[in-house]
Simulated scan of single mutants.
Amino acid sequence: MNDALANSRKLQDFLEKEIVLMRSLDQLLIEEQIVLTNNEAEKLGTITPEKNNVLMQIVELEKNRNLFLSAIGYTPDARGMQDFFAATENSDKLEDNWKNLLSISSDAQEKNRTNGLLISRQLSRNQSALNILQQNTQTGSMYGADGQSKNNSTTGRGIIAG
């Protein structure tokens, strides 16, 4: 087997694994978006660790792919991939997988941006609610240490049952 074919197979292996992981990440981002839209923040506790795990695997694969590109004489980046395609015969399937990976990555990036906006919006709502609650007293606390309201809105006598 010649070097070009072996190199193509190795890069194909990297890309196929990256595509699987990027699809997983994309799906997790969809789930995260649903949870954020439905205001079910408690469910983020299961999605976030999964998402972080997938991201770490993607970063590791990308790093290894780039190291491999360097080892075979190409720059460790998208330009290096394009140069490899240009220098290699019958790299159409490999190039299609590369374009597929870039497309999935772009979709995931947009979903991640949207999720960030949803999180910011929710944080803003939470802060507004806290501000409203804290406006009710000058001390910022509605209840004293005894659990009784600090707001004495009743003047005069209370209700007398009799």
Rank of each mutant, 00 (worst) to 15 (best):
residue 71 A to L: 04
residue 71 A to M: 04
residue 72 I to F: 00
residue 72 I to V: 10
residue 72 I to M: 00
residue 72 I to E: 03
residue 73 G to I: 01
residue 73 G to F: 03
residue 73 G to M: 01
residue 73 G to D: 02
residue 74 Y to N: 01
residue 75 T to N: 07
residue 77 D to R: 07
residue 79 R to K: 15
residue 80 G to V: 05
residue 80 G to H: 03
residue 81 M to I: 06
residue 81 M to A: 08
residue 81 M to T: 02
residue 82 Q to V: 14
residue 83 D to G: 06
residue 83 D to K: 08
residue 84 F to S: 02
residue 85 F to N: 00
residue 85 F to R: 01
residue 85 F to H: 00
residue 87 A to N: 08
residue 88 T to A: 01
residue 89 E to I: 05
residue 90 N to A: 11
residue 90 N to R: 10
residue 90 N to W: 03
residue 91 S to Q: 03
residue 91 S to C: 08
residue 91 S to Y: 06
residue 92 D to V: 11
residue 93 K to T: 11
residue 93 K to Q: 12
residue 93 K to Y: 09
residue 93 K to E: 11
residue 94 L to M: 00
residue 94 L to Q: 00
residue 95 E to K: 12
residue 96 D to K: 13
residue 98 W to T: 00
residue 100 N to P: 07
residue 100 N to S: 14
residue 101 L to G: 02
residue 101 L to W: 06
residue 101 L to T: 06
residue 101 L to Y: 06
residue 102 L to Q: 14
residue 104 I to V: 08
residue 106 S to R: 07
residue 106 S to W: 04
residue 106 S to D: 12
residue 106 S to P: 00
residue 106 S to F: 10
residue 107 D to L: 09
residue 108 A to Q: 07
residue 109 Q to L: 13
residue 109 Q to P: 02
residue 110 E to Y: 07
residue 111 K to W: 10
residue 112 N to S: 08
residue 112 N to E: 03
residue 112 N to Y: 04
residue 112 N to L: 06
residue 112 N to D: 05
residue 113 R to L: 11
residue 113 R to K: 12
residue 113 R to E: 10
residue 113 R to S: 09
residue 114 T to G: 08
residue 115 N to A: 07
residue 116 G to T: 06
residue 116 G to R: 01
residue 117 L to V: 09
residue 117 L to P: 09
residue 117 L to H: 14
residue 117 L to N: 15
residue 118 L to I: 01
residue 118 L to Y: 09
residue 119 I to T: 10
residue 119 I to L: 08
residue 120 S to E: 15
residue 120 S to Y: 15
residue 120 S to Q: 15
residue 121 R to N: 11
residue 121 R to T: 13
residue 122 Q to N: 12
residue 122 Q to F: 10
residue 123 L to N: 13
residue 123 L to W: 12
residue 123 L to G: 04
residue 123 L to C: 04
residue 123 L to S: 06
residue 124 S to L: 09
residue 125 R to E: 14
residue 125 R to P: 05
residue 126 N to M: 10
residue 126 N to W: 09
residue 127 Q to K: 15
residue 127 Q to M: 10
residue 127 Q to S: 14
residue 128 S to F: 15
residue 129 A to E: 11
residue 131 N to A: 06
residue 131 N to F: 05
residue 132 I to Y: 10
residue 132 I to N: 08
residue 132 I to M: 10
residue 133 L to G: 03
residue 133 L to F: 11
residue 134 Q to S: 12
residue 135 Q to W: 07
residue 135 Q to A: 13
residue 135 Q to N: 11
residue 136 N to L: 14
residue 136 N to W: 14
residue 137 T to G: 04
residue 137 T to L: 05
residue 138 Q to F: 11
residue 138 Q to E: 13
residue 138 Q to K: 12
residue 139 T to Q: 07
residue 139 T to P: 01
residue 139 T to W: 02
